[in-house]
Design a protein around this nucleic acid. Structure first.
Lengths: 164, 164
DNA sequence: TGTGAAACTCTTGGTGC
DNA sequence: GCACCAAGAGTTTCACA
């Protein structure tokens, strides 16, 4: 994982449909070399998948809410119970009282209520606190470090001269 | 947006590196027709981008936290202030008291503390409540509806035939 | 590990149904 | 709106440095 790898990741996060030729040019490598690096990043599990980002509203999932799930029992091995609810996009075990935080997307607030009912049905769940999102400022890929684009010749010369 | 479109979206969410030929076969269409549908979905903004999903730990962002940001002023037009902090992956305006919920990924809890300091520096911010995630059950693409195609022969199929 | 070129796929437009 | 087909582009491999 060197700096070029991080640049490749940042470029792919922005647009994974680019050609390896374009990718290579952006980081100063040939298409073949860029391809080989990306292939390794996939193999190592650094790049877990290539996916598409879909507009929730277009799939009739315009309502976003975060729900804090309180429980009386240990929830650490209950992943499947949450995964069984398709409207739940994320589920995290959090510090504090035995609790889980879930991110939910539904078509309407009525359907949100329905999700809450299904959460209560999970064994050990003692309560929920739903927080509805009014506006999403942004949701973005995680920062891969400074991906200095184009002709960003790093002054200061960290790059070692290639001697042979 | 018919059922075939939803199937295409679900397939692309799973693996956007598939060929249009494979995509078409999965939904019972020719490669050209599948391509045309995906092209339109992109044009309509239903598919917003094609990206890669990166392992946060590999980018040294192993600590995940949700932070509730309380404020004394209206925050609805402060998106840039939050976007300026690279560790913030998501920022949402939520119902209730004037507040924002942000999702933060840092390398260590010390860096998380540093992010909190920068949040306090934003004009109008009066407090923060951070919740650290102990374990993530799952994070997945939003459900595009039942994606099981026609004769959903999930036989040999996930790995693209690599013949040569 | 990277380059350059060759072999092979896929994408992507055009035509007809 | 879809199937079929052809040309061009991109991917992927391999010998060599």
């Amino acid at each position: 994982m060197d700096d070029i790898d991080r640049q490749l990741i940042a470029l792919l996060q922005q647009d994974a449909t680019q050609s390896y030729a374009a990718l290579g040019k952006a980081v100063g490598l040939s298409a073949g070399a860029a391809h080989e690096r990306v292939r390794k990043l996939r193999g190592q599990g650094v790049i877990r998948a290539t996916t598409v980002d879909v507009d929730p509203a277009a799939l009739d999932r315009g309502v976003l809410a975060f729900v804090l799930v309180d429980s009386t029992a240990w929830m650490g091995d209950r992943a499947e119970d949450f995964a069984a609810v398709p409207e739940i996009q994320e589920a995290h075990v959090i510090a504090g009282s035995a609790a889980v935080l879930v991110k939910v997307r539904t078509s309407t607030t009525e359907r949100l209520q329905d999700v809450l009912r299904r959460l209560y049905a999970i064994d050990g769940v003692s309560g929920t606190q739903a927080t509805v999102v009014l506006e999403t400022f942004f949701e973005r890929p995680l920062d891969a470090g400074q991906a200095l684009p184009l002709g960003s010749a790093r002054l200061g010369g960290v790059t070692p001269a290639r001697r042979r």
